[in-house]
Amino acid sequence: MADPTPVIDDLRAESEELDRLVAGLDVAQWALPTPADGWTVAHQIAHLAWTDRSALLAVTDEDGFRVMVEKALAAPATFVDGGAEEGSRLPVPELLAGWRDGRTALDLALRRAPDGARFPWYGPPMAAASMATARLMETWAHGLDIAEAVGAVREPTARLRHIARLGVRTRDFAFGVRGLPVPEAAFRVELRAPDGEELWTYGPEDADQRITGTALDFCLLVTQRAHRADLSLTATGPDADRWLDIAQAFAGPPGPGRPAQPESPSAQEDAR
């Protein structure tokens, strides 16, 4: 089994970077709207805190997590938003402290997880490394929403490697959750790392269908933080091209994604 420590360390670093951003905000900025419809900065942090608590239950209290899943099944359309809404009403210091405490407890639980252990989740069970990768992906994606709301810039880092790998591994899920036939052949994915030098590669080198571009753009795509029309990703082959329309690295039903920017070619075409 792969050592989960590197991705757990990167999850901690990603969380701490976002913490430094929100810790410097005034109370009014926590109420700013983010690109996620109906969500403020407070909603974004509340959602991260809620999901960290869910992950902690999955790792440490399977019966407690089962109760949470039953609640989710009883209200599948509102369960996630309800948790974010409830947390967003907390006073900012309490919300921030709760997020910090929850992610610290999860960090410790993941590091103490037995080798080979798998934990229940809203999708397939996950190992400690997979759980940490999913939390890193969400922390990065929601951090982007917060940064956009407050006018901050977050530079991409090598931590994107984990999200890129998750995006590649969830290819079949993205097709299946939409009821589309899953491609039989593997794709080749070649992504330029944030340092501009390293190339991250996935899949057979001689694959007929391919995706090429930057790791940042690919991660923006699979977390549905940008429309493909606004990204410099190239698809070779019809199935690879279709994947760029539906890619989704997070669990749950198909996400609506973000609209193309008005100046993008596809947005101009839609307006005609």
Rank of each mutant, 00 (worst) to 15 (best):
A84C: 11
P91D: 09
A193D: 05
T234Y: 06
W99V: 12
G87Q: 09
D208F: 01
V150W: 06
T236D: 14
T51V: 13
D245K: 13
G123Q: 07
S266C: 04
G24M: 01
F119P: 00
A164I: 11
L233Q: 00
S15Y: 03
A77T: 10
E155S: 10
E70G: 09
R154N: 01
D217M: 07
G252M: 09
G82Y: 10
S130A: 08
L96A: 08
T51I: 13
S232Q: 12
L191D: 03
R272E: 14
D270E: 03
R178I: 00
R258N: 08
E197Y: 02
L32F: 15
W99R: 00
W39K: 00
T201V: 15
T34L: 13
A215E: 11
G203T: 07
P254I: 01
G38R: 12
V177P: 11
E205M: 01
Q268Y: 05
L221N: 02
G98A: 12
L11F: 12
S264K: 06
I8N: 03
D270H: 11
A75D: 14
G252F: 02
D208Y: 04
A23P: 07
L136C: 13
I45L: 14
A164S: 10
A134H: 14
A249R: 11
P120H: 03
A158C: 01
R169W: 10
A158M: 09
Y202Q: 10
A109L: 10
V189M: 08
I211T: 04
R66W: 04
A164T: 08
P254D: 01
T157G: 03
P238F: 00
L244R: 12
D245P: 03
F187K: 08
R111A: 10
A249Q: 07
R171N: 08
P156T: 01
I45D: 02
A267P: 02
V59L: 15
D206E: 13
E190W: 13
F250S: 14
A31W: 05
V27Y: 11
P6H: 07
F119E: 07
D19N: 05
Q224M: 06
D10F: 01
G237W: 15
E138V: 00
T51S: 14
L18C: 05
D245C: 03
D115Y: 08
A134R: 13
D52L: 02
P124I: 01
A251Q: 14
F79Y: 12
R89F: 15
E205H: 04
A229M: 03
V222I: 15
Q248H: 14
A235N: 04
D19P: 02
F79A: 12
G87M: 06
D270S: 15
G82S: 07
T201E: 08
L216D: 05
V92I: 07
E86P: 13
G24L: 00
A109R: 01
T104E: 14
R111Y: 05
W99D: 01
E70Y: 03
A72W: 15
G102T: 09
V182A: 01
K71C: 06
R188W: 13
T40D: 05
I163D: 13
V22H: 00
R242E: 05
F65Y: 11
R192V: 10
A13D: 04
S54L: 15
E190V: 15
P4G: 05
G83F: 07
L11P: 11
L144P: 00
E94H: 09
H162R: 15
